[in-house]
Simulated assay, not measured.
Amino acid sequence: MSTSGDVLARLEHVGIVPVVVVDDPDHGAPLAEALRDAGIGCAEFTLRTPAGLGALAGAARVDGFLAGAGTVLSPVQADAVADAGAAFVVSPGYAPEVIDRARAREVAMVPGVATPTEVQRAMADGFSHVKVFPAGLLGGTAYLDALGGPFPDLRVLPSGGVSADNLVDYLSRPQVFAASGSWMVPRAAIATGDFESVGRLAEACAALRDRARSAR
């Protein structure tokens, strides 16, 4: 079994965490294959639709792919995604009961934070990697730079407002271990099974990631 550190290292290696909303549970595996083959070997399958859990389970069975769960708001949901094979859990906010359940199930946790107070609490609870949401509305890269002053060891996953236009700017910052967004996994394309389009978008996204890394 992979440790939390192993999972976080893999997420950092990939550098991009697609945020997926699916309407058909059977689309999880082919979507994961399309992303993996395009150079993005992970995704966060949200629980915003009834199909999310089944799609996560399908993606978790794809070799070379790291399937995670997003919008996990309760311990019951944390148990459900762990049972489905999630390698990591992402929450929009800081919920101790969700964190405790994910840790009990030995699933890597990336809790959501928005304020310095929440960052400080997360670090006191042993987290070095957090999700900053909604990053764009909070101030984007300028906000992340400001957090880097008092929290130089913090590693962040910006989410909310990340796009193809600013991905390089986010990923060029050393405190950003990965960035999440949904433009490379359009819901409409997934719903129609157009994984070829998803693959093209993911390849373009991976190219931006590589460009950002070369600029560091």
Rank of each mutant, 00 (worst) to 15 (best):
T117Q: 06
E118Y: 13
E118D: 14
Q120E: 13
R121L: 12
A122M: 03
A122S: 11
M123L: 13
M123A: 13
D125I: 09
G126R: 05
F127E: 09
F127P: 11
F127L: 06
S128D: 15
S128L: 10
V130A: 07
K131Q: 11
K131W: 12
K131S: 05
V132T: 09
V132F: 14
F133R: 02
P134F: 04
P134W: 04
P134L: 08
P134K: 00
G136I: 05
L138E: 07
L138F: 04
G139K: 12
G140T: 03
A142E: 10
A142M: 13
A142N: 14
A142F: 15
Y143C: 09
Y143Q: 12
L144S: 04
L144I: 11
D145C: 00
D145T: 04
G148R: 13
G148W: 10
G149C: 06
F151E: 01
D153I: 00
D153K: 03
D153R: 10
D153V: 01
L154G: 15
R155C: 08
R155Q: 15
R155I: 01
V156M: 01
V156G: 07
L157A: 04
L157W: 04
L157V: 13
P158F: 01
P158H: 02
S159K: 06
G160D: 09
G160K: 01
G161N: 03
G161P: 10
V162H: 04
V162A: 02
V162T: 03
